[in-house]
């Protein structure tokens, strides 16, 4: 027998009563009168910043990050990008990115999560950048994670993540610090 069969046989020999799957579609999950307003509130609570798109997106990014030198994006409208995660030689070449610009699919009002399926060759851009800008269509906000998981889709790359605010830690003496190993700031641009 293979190791898998060994383990499963052992399990079957020991498992006792088998319980049925519960009904889940009767969960009375929270909804909000204004999901967008709740999403904005939660994004701020988790340490993110939310701005409305105005004028040219490149000008807006320049205005938000006047010091930024290296800007990484594979989005065609980001003409100020100096690096492209689709064409960099390796993920490591994205280190030192000041601002990464990516697109989010939808936001979740209850916790500020944004679904980001990988749509670029090097997903490192989502984490390695000092500052992350997420472009998010403002008419795509769901109430809660139940609704969210009904919409989750992947692209050909087999990776996707919900991001809610900047990377953070409280591992030193329980003091909350933004910017642990990944993006130190997250700005959501509502488009």
């Amino acid at each position: 027998m293979s190791k898998k069969e060994d383990i499963l046989a052992r399990y079957r020999a020991h498992v006792r009563e088998r319980f049925d799957r519960p009904v889940l579609d009767d969960i009375q999950a929270i909804t909000y009168p204004d999901p967008l307003a709740q999403f904005v509130r939660m994004s701020q609570t988790v340490g993110g910043r939310v701005v409305e798109a105005e004028g040219n997106i490149n000008d807006l990014i320049r205005k938000l990050f006047p010091e930024a030198k290296e800007i990484a994006s594979n989005l065609p409208e980001i003409t100020i990008a100096t690096r492209n995660p689709d064409t960099v030689e390796s993920a490591r070449a994205l280190n030192g990115t000041d601002v990464g610009v990516i697109r989010g699919c939808f936001g979740v009002a209850e916790n500020g999560c944004i679904w980001i399926p990988q749509t670029m060759k090097e997903k490192a851009v989502c984490f390695i950048s000092e500052n992350l800008v997420i472009l998010l269509p403002k008419d795509r906000i769901v109430n809660n994670m139940h609704e969210a998981y009904r919409q989750v889709e992947f692209h050909d790359y087999g990776y996707g993540t919900f991001i809610s605010g900047p990377s953070k830690t409280a591992d030193i003496a329980q003091v909350l610090v933004m910017g642990a190993q990944a993006a130190r700031s997250v700005t959501v641009v509502l488009v």
């Binding site: 939660m42 916790n111 139940h146 809610s164």
Partner: peptide, 28 residues
């Protein structure tokens, strides 16, 4: 995923009192 939604909502609220972890990453 229908089951995952239940746990994703509870894990961090119960554990650290946050509405979610910053990253909920799916590796496929």
């Amino acid at each position: 995923y229908e089951c995952l939604a239940v746990f994703q909502r509870m894990l961090c609220r119960a554990g650290t009192g946050q509405p979610t972890t910053t990253y909920t990453s799916h590796f496929r």
